[in-house]
Simulated scan of single mutants.
Amino acid sequence: MAHVMSREELAAWVASQPSVYDLTELTGRKKNEESTTFVLTFEVGRRSLMVALISGTVVGLPVAAVLSWILSVFGLGEFLYLVFLGPLLAGAIGIWLFVGRQSRGMRLTRYRGLLDKRKAKAANGKLYVGLVEVEEPVLSVMIPVVIDTPPTMIPGAIAPVIPAATPLTRKGARA
Protein backbone atom coordinates (compact mmCIF):
# COMPACT_ATOMS: atom_id res chain seq x y z
CA MET A 1 0.00 0.00 0.00
CA ALA A 2 1.19 3.51 -0.80
CA HIS A 3 2.55 5.70 1.94
CA VAL A 4 0.66 8.96 2.42
CA MET A 5 3.05 11.90 2.86
CA SER A 6 2.49 15.13 4.66
CA ARG A 7 3.21 18.42 2.92
CA GLU A 8 6.54 18.76 4.67
CA GLU A 9 7.59 15.24 3.67
CA LEU A 10 6.48 15.88 0.09
CA ALA A 11 8.41 19.17 -0.07
CA ALA A 12 11.54 17.46 1.31
CA TRP A 13 11.17 14.60 -1.21
CA VAL A 14 10.76 17.02 -4.15
CA ALA A 15 13.81 19.02 -3.00
CA SER A 16 15.88 15.82 -2.86
CA GLN A 17 15.11 14.93 -6.51
CA PRO A 18 17.64 15.91 -9.21
CA SER A 19 16.83 18.97 -11.32
CA VAL A 20 15.84 18.66 -14.96
CA TYR A 21 16.86 21.36 -17.43
CA ASP A 22 15.64 22.13 -20.93
CA LEU A 23 18.81 22.38 -23.02
CA THR A 24 17.27 22.86 -26.47
CA GLU A 25 17.91 26.61 -26.38
CA LEU A 26 21.58 25.97 -25.55
CA THR A 27 22.29 23.01 -27.84
CA GLY A 28 19.51 23.07 -30.46
CA ARG A 29 19.42 24.25 -34.05
CA LYS A 30 18.94 27.91 -33.10
CA LYS A 31 21.60 28.00 -30.36
CA ASN A 32 23.56 30.87 -31.92
CA GLU A 33 20.55 32.91 -32.98
CA GLU A 34 20.45 34.91 -29.76
CA SER A 35 24.20 35.47 -29.39
CA THR A 36 25.16 39.15 -29.29
CA THR A 37 28.27 41.28 -29.45
CA PHE A 38 28.95 44.84 -28.29
CA VAL A 39 30.16 47.34 -30.89
CA LEU A 40 31.14 50.63 -29.25
CA THR A 41 28.12 51.04 -26.95
CA PHE A 42 25.58 49.10 -29.04
CA GLU A 43 24.51 45.52 -28.58
CA VAL A 44 24.41 43.86 -31.99
CA GLY A 45 23.44 40.34 -33.00
CA ARG A 46 26.47 38.36 -34.06
CA ARG A 47 24.95 37.33 -37.39
CA SER A 48 23.89 40.91 -38.15
CA LEU A 49 27.39 42.15 -37.43
CA MET A 50 29.02 39.55 -39.68
CA VAL A 51 26.59 40.20 -42.55
CA ALA A 52 27.01 43.97 -42.27
CA LEU A 53 30.81 43.77 -42.23
CA ILE A 54 31.06 41.29 -45.11
CA SER A 55 28.52 43.00 -47.36
CA GLY A 56 29.90 46.43 -46.48
CA THR A 57 33.43 45.45 -47.46
CA VAL A 58 32.80 43.11 -50.40
CA VAL A 59 30.12 45.24 -52.06
CA GLY A 60 30.48 48.66 -50.42
CA LEU A 61 34.20 49.28 -50.82
CA PRO A 62 34.25 48.89 -54.63
CA VAL A 63 31.23 51.19 -54.86
CA ALA A 64 32.98 53.71 -52.61
CA ALA A 65 36.16 53.52 -54.71
CA VAL A 66 34.27 54.17 -57.95
CA LEU A 67 32.26 56.98 -56.36
CA SER A 68 35.37 58.66 -54.96
CA TRP A 69 37.08 58.46 -58.39
CA ILE A 70 34.00 60.00 -60.05
CA LEU A 71 33.83 62.82 -57.48
CA SER A 72 37.56 63.59 -57.80
CA VAL A 73 37.48 63.60 -61.63
CA PHE A 74 34.62 66.06 -61.77
CA GLY A 75 36.11 68.30 -59.08
CA LEU A 76 33.40 67.64 -56.48
CA GLY A 77 35.80 67.18 -53.55
CA GLU A 78 33.42 68.91 -51.14
CA PHE A 79 30.98 66.00 -51.62
CA LEU A 80 33.57 63.37 -50.79
CA TYR A 81 31.60 62.38 -47.66
CA LEU A 82 29.13 60.64 -50.03
CA VAL A 83 31.76 57.90 -50.38
CA PHE A 84 30.65 56.50 -47.01
CA LEU A 85 27.13 55.89 -48.32
CA GLY A 86 28.30 52.88 -50.38
CA PRO A 87 29.39 50.66 -47.47
CA LEU A 88 26.51 51.86 -45.28
CA LEU A 89 23.88 51.09 -47.91
CA ALA A 90 25.53 47.76 -48.78
CA GLY A 91 25.52 46.75 -45.08
CA ALA A 92 21.89 47.77 -44.65
CA ILE A 93 20.82 45.88 -47.77
CA GLY A 94 22.83 42.84 -46.64
CA ILE A 95 21.11 42.83 -43.26
CA TRP A 96 17.71 43.22 -44.95
CA LEU A 97 18.41 40.29 -47.31
CA PHE A 98 20.31 37.80 -45.16
CA VAL A 99 19.10 38.50 -41.61
CA GLY A 100 15.57 39.77 -42.10
CA ARG A 101 12.83 37.19 -42.45
CA GLN A 102 9.65 37.03 -44.49
CA SER A 103 6.49 37.98 -42.65
CA ARG A 104 4.44 35.13 -44.12
CA GLY A 105 4.84 31.42 -44.62
CA MET A 106 7.85 29.59 -43.24
CA ARG A 107 9.62 32.83 -42.28
CA LEU A 108 12.64 32.14 -44.47
CA THR A 109 15.31 34.76 -44.92
CA ARG A 110 14.44 37.13 -47.75
CA TYR A 111 17.36 35.90 -49.87
CA ARG A 112 16.25 32.26 -49.52
CA GLY A 113 12.68 33.32 -50.35
CA LEU A 114 13.85 35.06 -53.54
CA LEU A 115 15.83 31.98 -54.59
CA ASP A 116 12.88 29.67 -53.90
CA LYS A 117 10.53 31.94 -55.84
CA ARG A 118 12.86 31.87 -58.83
CA LYS A 119 13.13 28.06 -58.68
CA ALA A 120 9.34 27.74 -58.42
CA LYS A 121 8.82 29.90 -61.52
CA ALA A 122 11.33 27.78 -63.45
CA ALA A 123 9.61 24.56 -62.38
CA ASN A 124 6.07 25.77 -63.10
CA GLY A 125 3.97 23.00 -64.66
CA LYS A 126 6.53 20.26 -63.94
CA LEU A 127 6.09 17.36 -61.57
CA TYR A 128 9.00 16.16 -59.44
CA VAL A 129 9.17 12.94 -57.46
CA GLY A 130 12.10 13.32 -55.13
CA LEU A 131 14.60 15.23 -57.27
CA VAL A 132 13.68 13.52 -60.55
CA GLU A 133 11.33 15.20 -63.00
CA VAL A 134 8.47 13.01 -64.21
CA GLU A 135 8.22 13.31 -68.00
CA GLU A 136 4.50 12.67 -68.54
CA PRO A 137 2.46 12.73 -65.38
CA VAL A 138 -0.24 10.06 -65.49
CA LEU A 139 -3.06 9.68 -63.01
CA SER A 140 -4.26 6.13 -62.44
CA VAL A 141 -7.30 5.60 -60.27
CA MET A 142 -8.32 2.14 -59.13
CA ILE A 143 -12.05 1.95 -58.41
CA PRO A 144 -13.26 -1.18 -56.62
CA VAL A 145 -16.34 -2.66 -58.25
CA VAL A 146 -18.72 -4.84 -56.27
CA ILE A 147 -20.91 -7.17 -58.29
CA ASP A 148 -24.00 -8.24 -56.42
CA THR A 149 -25.28 -10.46 -59.23
CA PRO A 150 -24.62 -14.18 -58.88
CA PRO A 151 -22.14 -15.46 -61.45
CA THR A 152 -24.73 -17.82 -62.92
CA MET A 153 -26.89 -14.84 -63.97
CA ILE A 154 -24.07 -13.15 -65.91
CA PRO A 155 -24.13 -14.22 -69.58
CA GLY A 156 -20.95 -15.95 -70.61
CA ALA A 157 -19.69 -16.39 -67.04
CA ILE A 158 -18.49 -19.80 -65.97
CA ALA A 159 -19.74 -20.60 -62.50
CA PRO A 160 -18.15 -23.35 -60.44
CA VAL A 161 -20.34 -26.36 -59.82
CA ILE A 162 -20.88 -26.87 -56.12
CA PRO A 163 -22.20 -30.28 -55.12
CA ALA A 164 -25.28 -30.39 -52.93
CA ALA A 165 -24.59 -30.63 -49.25
CA THR A 166 -25.20 -33.91 -47.52
CA PRO A 167 -27.18 -33.71 -44.29
CA LEU A 168 -25.37 -34.61 -41.10
CA THR A 169 -26.75 -36.72 -38.30
CA ARG A 170 -26.58 -35.79 -34.66
CA LYS A 171 -23.16 -37.20 -33.86
CA GLY A 172 -21.58 -36.02 -37.07
CA ALA A 173 -22.06 -39.26 -38.98
CA ARG A 174 -23.30 -38.96 -42.50
CA ALA A 175 -26.69 -40.27 -43.26
Score class of each variant (00 low, 15 high):
M1W: 11
H3N: 11
V4R: 11
V4C: 04
S6C: 06
R7L: 10
E9P: 03
A12L: 04
A12G: 07
V14W: 06
V14E: 01
P18A: 00
P18T: 07
V20L: 05
V20K: 08
D22G: 09
D22P: 07
T24P: 06
G28P: 04
G28S: 02
G28T: 03
G28E: 04
R29E: 07
R29M: 06
K31G: 04
N32A: 10
E33P: 03
S35Q: 07
S35L: 09
F38P: 08
V39A: 06
L40C: 10
L40M: 11
T41E: 06
F42P: 00
E43M: 10
V44P: 02
V44C: 03
V44Q: 08
G45E: 09
G45V: 08
S48P: 00
L49G: 04
M50C: 13
M50G: 13
V51W: 02
V51I: 01
A52G: 09
I54M: 07
S55W: 08
G56H: 05
T57M: 14
G60I: 03
V63I: 14
V63A: 14
A65I: 05
V66I: 13
V66G: 12
L67H: 01
S68Y: 10
S68T: 13
W69D: 12
I70H: 06
I70N: 03
S72L: 14
F74P: 02
G75P: 03
L76K: 13
G77I: 07
E78Y: 12
F79M: 01
F79T: 01
F79K: 02
Y81T: 02
L82Y: 04
L85P: 05
L85A: 10
L85K: 07
G86V: 00
G86Y: 08
P87M: 10
L88D: 11
L88C: 11
L88M: 13
L88V: 13
G91E: 01
G94V: 04
I95V: 08
L97H: 02
V99N: 08
R101Y: 00
R104G: 08
R104F: 12
R104T: 06
G105P: 02
M106I: 06
R107G: 02
R110S: 05
G113D: 14
L114H: 09
L114C: 12
D116T: 08
K117F: 09
R118N: 13
R118G: 15
A122D: 13
K126S: 07
K126N: 07
L127R: 05
E135H: 12
E136F: 12
P137H: 11
S140I: 14
S140R: 12
V141F: 00
M142C: 01
V145R: 01
V146L: 14
V146E: 15
I147N: 15
I147Q: 14
P150W: 00
T152W: 13
G156M: 01
G156T: 04
A159E: 06
A159P: 06
P160W: 10
P160E: 11
P160M: 09
I162R: 01
I162Q: 01
I162M: 03
A165F: 11
L168T: 14
L168A: 12
L168Y: 12
L168N: 12
L168C: 12
R174H: 15
A175T: 15
